[in-house]
């Protein structure tokens, strides 16, 4: 009874692993792996150093699987902050994923709900950026799913191995080396690959300034401020045809 679906899914997995797009997805993610691996290691160490037991830390790495949200939540957990504060902070740090998911919808919308939700759950920043670069047209195309699954497998595997190592070797890993900076460097490269025309440059500059200026806001809300300012700047840069630009400009004229 149980063995047949099991055998079927093993066969499906074997077929998937032979798919050329699956291998391409794995290959395209490999350059990001060192940065993510170092970041995973540091996150693993950070969980134990902030007072979580090994079992709780393992639970966190496998259930949460979101490095920046974990690092934002840990000091709050250590300080005994109320749960809703921790959850809200993590959600704000994760807001970019909400934005990504709007785009995932164009590619994955035709899949059964459970399947697309589970794929979304394990698809991080790097998966998103690489996928969008490979498939810029927002519509489903053959080969996309194996490509995405290959990338998810590489990222998930690399991250979890290093995070578990960090949890187990927390007392040996030299924290003062600042190895987690490799994760920031990987995100710098990732941002670079999203920069294109002048409007995206201006928009990114506005995001940087707004994030620093609004950094003192609680619950990491500076990210929300930065996104709002950057989107407004980008749309204004698009010129007179912009549907946000027109009402904004005419109201500025009216104010004069």
């Amino acid at each position: 009874m149980v063995t047949r679906p099991l055998a079927e899914s093993i066969a499906a997995l074997r077929e998937l692993s032979r798919h050329p797009q699956f291998r391409r997805g794995m290959r395209e993610l490999l350059p990001m792996l060192p940065g993510m691996a170092a970041w995973g290691l540091v996150t693993g160490v950070a969980m134990v150093k902030s007072g979580l037991g090994v079992g709780t830390a393992l639970l966190m790495t496998f259930v949460v699987y979101a490095g920046s949200a974990q690092l934002a939540a840990l000091p709050l957990m250590a300080a005994g902050a109320p749960m809703w504060v921790i959850w809200l902070t993590a959600f704000v740090v994760n807001l970019r994923f909400v934005i990504y998911s709007a785009q995932w919808r164009f590619y994955l919308g035709h899949l059964p709900r459970l399947q697309r939700v589970l794929i979304g759950y394990v698809a991080g920043d790097v998966n998103y950026a690489v996928f969008i670069r490979t498939w810029p047209e927002p519509r489903p195309e053959p080969g996309q799913l194996p490509h995405l699954l290959g990338g998810i497998l590489v990222m998930w595997g690399g991250w979890q191995v290093m995070s578990v190592l960090g949890i187990l070797l927390a007392d040996v890993v030299p924290v003062h080396w600042g190895l987690g900076f490799a994760g920031t460097l990987a995100l710098i490269g990732l941002s670079g690959s999203l920069l294109g025309d002048r409007a995206t440059w201006v928009s990114a500059g506005v995001a940087a300034a707004a994030a620093v200026a609004a950094f003192a806001l609680p619950y990491k809300l500076h990210i929300v401020v930065a996104v709002a300012a950057a989107v407004a700047a980008g749309l204004l840069m698009e010129g007179p045809g912009s549907s946000l630009g027109r009402p904004l400009r005419s109201s500025i004229r009216a104010a004069r």
């Binding site: 970019r96 785009q103 941002s191 995206t200 990114a204 995001a207 994030a211 996104v227």
Partner: peptide, 8 residues
């Protein structure tokens, strides 16, 4: 998405 990454 770029703005959110930059803000982090």
């Amino acid at each position: 998405p770029l703005a959110a990454l930059v803000a982090i």
